[in-house]
Design a protein around this nucleic acid. Structure first.
Length: 570
RNA sequence: GCACCCGUGGCUUAACUGGAUAAAGCGCGGCCCUCCGAAGGCCGAGAUUACAAGUUCGACUCUUGUCGGGUGCACCA
């Protein structure tokens, strides 16, 4: 159960007003504390300690309170009865959500014909965890991988293929779209090199760039040859995406619908914009002005058609909003992208409001920081290239294999990789989403201390005790709680509140830090409180087994929310 | 230029709504495997929270300024 919530509600009811309930950093002070007396002292015209003295008897009367005392400048410290803690911890976790929302979760945003790189790590891992948390809290989520499959990069890739194979039928005047073109299949390893090569060339070769722009516009207008070619290489990219999703153990997306799908709704969206007189011609393009008089920051217009008649991502994002409106009609849309796109989403949300598609309060953009190398610049591999996601995964896998080899343990490859993945994912989840963080290969692959493997190891230990013992925990009774057992139970009872706080604050680090602290409590308990040893009293053993059971259940739940798997051994 | 974000031990990070003695990990100096798994536990050294004012009973947290770093500002996504 949610102990915090229960205690808070009980105290508020007893006192007749909402007292602020805190969990003291220093456990010595008590399980909970309230600063109500200090907050109210001024308006009451009393000194805080005196006021605390008035409140104290009421709090002490509550049946779950062991004792309450006044401390420092006027804090009321509250200690909960052991028996109450014991019974509370044993209650099943049941999340009842009185107000479940339909939430579109937009993360991933993979690109076609561009292999995934380190930048996709956070959106995938964090997005997946938010999705799992939201579901856990009873919301109805629909995840979208809004893939980049319709913009300039497509034009560049096609232009590059045209340069390599000018003789291919896709580029001929008399193109027959009814034939089978599957023999022009391009392996993913090769396809992935096209975009970087083309982008590089376009930087210096203006003619090539212009060709790509024209091709982009023609593709979007339905050019038969380009579309046939596009349909040949798209599945190759989609398959590569699926492989990565499996490899990093994130849930499959409910929808892999990107710009191309959105672009189908250009007519109804354009109609809305015209009816509301929102489109303006400017330098050959058609734009939507979203600037307000109150703006102090730069607020450029939104591009609907560029001067070549193509629809850039500003436009496809509006159409995607329309698509979601007529399909899911969600209560909320949460976008998770790099924080550099902040302005883009501010613009998009203004258009949503102007068009009455969605009110701004239903739209939310979470921007995450960059993953940097030791030099503070975006992380690169040793050869100086932007690190590919597969390279990073392989690096961590190798480190895990070395670690296993050194330990002399017999651990299979599947488990080794799941340990490596835990290291990678936990490292990502534990950092404040909004800040940049430094990706240090050495510490990520060290597997000691504050790491994913530490979390898994703790769970494996608990599970090992459970597997070895045949003690039935159904009838475990409380004999006596030692300090370590008590601290652990209190920690476990904070789980429900933590998940809620993590979701409300859109902060996976709150959950990651919680589970790490919890594991520390488990390991201290494990070290100080023998369970299966012969000299342990039978009733104490049953009590501790119960605690192990509860701790393992909670730990499993959190590990699952983080998209990790507990190995059988490690 | 305008706007937004960030600055906490040697390094990487915490501190939930403004609360009590700023909490961990790595690294450093020690200790603990005859004892349920040492990817573990325990002890120690290490901090003027960039700087300067202000608000408050109380500031890492809020306000203003300074310095330092990052990011964005229509035809890439």
């Amino acid at each position: 159960m949610n102990l915090y919530k229960f205690v808070s509600n009980s105290i508020n009811e007893k006192l007749g007003f909402d007292a602020n309930l805190e969990t003291p950093k220093n456990r010595e002070f008590g399980d909970f504390a309230t600063n109500a007396a200090m907050v109210m002292a001024k308006s009451a015209g009393k000194n805080p300690r005196e006021l605390a003295g008035d409140l104290l008897p009421k709090i002490s009367e509550l049946d779950f309170v062991e004792n309450a005392s006044i401390a420092g400048p006027g804090f009321i410290n509250i200690k909960i009865k052991d028996n109450f803690i014991w019974e509370s911890a044993d209650k099943k976790i049941e999340i009842k959500n009185p107000n479940p929302l339909t939430i579109d979760m937009d993360y991933g945003a993979y690109n076609v014909a561009k292999s995934l790189h380190i930048g996709h790590l956070r959106t995938s891992i964090v997005g997946d965890t938010f999705n799992r948390i939201a579901k856990f809290l009873g919301h109805n989520t629909i995840s979208y991988n809004h893939i980049g499959d319709w913009g300039r990069s497509m034009g560049l890739v096609i232009a590059w293929i045209k340069k390599l194979h000018p003789d291919w039928p896709f580029f001929q005047d008399k193109f027959n779209s009814k034939l089978d073109y599957s023999k022009y299949y391009i392996p993913v390893q090769e396809l992935d090199t096209y975009y970087p090569s083309a982008a590089e060339l376009a930087k210096t070769d203006e003619e090539f760039m212009e060709q790509a722009r024209v091709i982009t516009a023609e593709l979007q207008k339905g050019h038969a040859g380009y579309n046939a070619l596009y349909n040949v290489f798209i599945p190759v990219s989609l398959k590569a995406m699926e492989d990565v999703i499996k490899k990093i153990n994130i849930m499959p997306f409910d929808n892999t619908l990107g710009e191309r799908n959105a672009a189908k709704y250009i007519e109804p969206v354009e109609k809305i914009l015209r009816e509301k007189h929102l489109l303006e011609k400017s330098d050959g393009a058609e734009i939507i002005v979203v600037k307000k008089d109150s703006d102090t920051a730069p607020m450029p217009p939104v591009m609907f058609y560029n001067s070549r008649g193509a629809v850039p991502y500003d436009a496809t994002d509006i159409m995607a909003l329309y698509y979601r409106k007529i399909t899911d009609n969600p209560d909320k849309i949460i976008y998770l992208t790099d924080s550099r796109q902040k302005l883009h989403f501010e613009q998009l949300f203004r258009v949503a409001e102007l068009t009455n598609l969605f009110p701004t309060e239903n739209l939310e953009h979470i921007g995450y920081g960059t993953i940097n190398g030791a030099d503070g610049k975006p992380f690169k591999t040793r050869d100086g290239n932007a690190a590919g996601l597969n390279d990073i995964i392989e690096m961590v896998n190798n480190a895990a294999r070395v670690r296993v080899l050194e330990s002399g343990k017999k651990i299979n490859n599947e488990i080794t990789e799941s340990i490596a993945l835990a290291a990678l994912k936990f490292n990502d989840l534990m950092h404040d989403l909004r800040s940049d963080y430094i990706f240090d290969p050495e510490s990520v692959t060290s597997f000691e201390g504050r790491t994913g493997p530490y979390i898994l190891y703790t769970a494996v230990r608990l599970n090992s005790v459970l597997k070895k013992s045949n003690v039935k925990t159904n009838n475990s009774k409380l004999v006596e709680l030692s300090k370590d057992e008590r601290n652990l139970l209190i920690g476990l009872l904070d789980f429900e509140r933590t998940v809620q706080v993590a979701f409300d604050n859109r902060a996976t680090d709150i959950l990651a830090n919680y589970v790490y602290d919890l594991c520390q409590l488990v390991n201290t308990f494990y070290h100080n409180c023998p369970i299966l040893r012969d000299d342990v009293d039978e009733q104490i053993r049953a009590q501790r087994m119960k605690i192990v059971q509860i701790a393992f259940n909670t730990l499993s739940t959190v590990i699952d929310l983080m998209g990790l798997k507990i190995p059988n051994e490690m």
